[in-house]
Design a protein around this nucleic acid. Structure first.
Lengths: 220, 220
DNA sequence: TTGCCCCCAAATCTCGGGATTATGGAAAAA
DNA sequence: TTTTTCCATAATCCCGAGATTTGGGGGCAA
């Protein structure tokens, strides 16, 4: 079976909220889901552990990382560093094609968030939103010209998402999210690097200032 | 056999210059070096590929990444971003214990570089220098309080080192290196964040401005 | 009751083999 | 001579099973 698709699918599962923090991930159990051997599944889990999406201890197996406010804060600050720098570089390099893609990604994300506002929060809609949000933030730094930065950002994004699998079921933060995204795009199109940095910082900081008590688990 | 030690040993080999850029890394061949099976070695190589230290293509095996000036530039700029930010944060948090460790790491590195100046460049001395240089740059950001930043820095450092395995055999750059390291430490002890950032940038930029033609392969 | 040690069930780790796929050279056609 | 096709060789990839280690429960002594 194609191992590369397996890797991405398992990566998505580790950040989707399907597993609880600290839960053991037994290769022998997961193997049945894709009809592969335990060895192959172990391979996947080892690779995920290199990215920090799975905890691995020799002779003691795999488990999902525990949640921690400090790690959440750490990942948030690092995302701010990378996205602020990446967006700033993207602006400085000034590609019209990048601006077009950014507005497109923002439009798609905004559309989904509008749907969230009126309709009921369904798991499908949440999945769509997660994908659109990732696409938006990746596009934001996509013109920076540094593959290394983009690669590091993607890795930290997944860890960040994993730490936030307990997300608000009421979507009460959506209005402010729409406003912040628009603000970032506007500042980017104005080529105001400092303002973009500040608004990215403000936008990502939200995840830390909102009290954890307001969050509810969403499991598939 | 203990797989964790294997991983670190193979990681060091991929950045030591033992293998040529683009060289194939056959699990079946490498397995003999540690008396393990090809499966175990494949596991190690897969993990290294996640870190970017080994190229992996399905059904086409593993190989050492090619050298490229663009990648070297990219890694350098990213190191500057992380080290400047990490050092700045370390200064801001102002731990006396961190300052002590920084001066200690600088002293150790300076001692080795002094030996390099007088003696002949031996492979052992080169290995000592590599270790001391890594230790110095890790210590520089060690007080930043962000495990995520430190982890990302270590990962990019290894990729950077791998791209520079073709290092100057004459060590003609050592005097300037000593001067730059001292300048960074002095600025750090003065708690001058901006100066530290500028000197880190200058120090790391050296690896890009020096023409590649001046470098000679050093193989064990 | 408490603490320590031993033993057994369960899980992990490693291995060699077999199925699948890429590679490279030779032969045939243009 | 150059290009294309084909096939033998060699490597990769995946699997099931055996060897090794961990964790926990029961027994014995204090």
């Amino acid at each position: 079976m194609e191992a590369e698709g397996l890797f991405e699918r398992m990566r998505d599962r580790t950040v989707s909220g399907e597993f609880a923090p600290g839960q053991r991930l037994r290769a022998e159990t997961l193997r049945a889901d894709y009809d592969v051997s335990a060895t192959t599944m172990r391979e996947i889990l080892l690779r995920l552990s290199t990215l920090g999406l799975v905890d691995f201890q020799e002779q003691r197996g795999f488990r999902l990382p525990e949640q921690s406010a400090e790690l959440r804060r750490d990942l948030t600050l690092f995302r701010i560093l990378l996205e602020a720098e990446g967006a700033s570089l993207s602006i400085r390099r000034g590609s019209v094609e990048w601006e077009a893609r950014l507005t497109a990604a923002h439009h798609a994300l905004g559309h989904i968030e509008s749907c969230v506002l009126v309709g009921k929060p369904s798991p499908d809609l949440l999945a769509l939103w997660v994908r659109a949000e990732l696409d938006f933030h990746r596009t934001l730094i996509d013109g920076c010209g540094s593959d290394v930065l983009k690669q590091a950002h993607l890795a930290v994004y997944y860890r960040f998402r994993q730490q936030l699998i307990t997300t608000d079921s009421g979507f009460h933060w959506v209005p402010k999210n729409i406003e912040q995204h628009r603000g970032i795009v506007d500042a980017a199109l104005d080529k105001d690097e400092e303002l973009v940095r500040e608004r990215i910082r403000e936008h990502l900081m939200r995840n830390m200032t909102d009290p954890v008590e307001n969050y509810m688990k969403v499991r598939a």
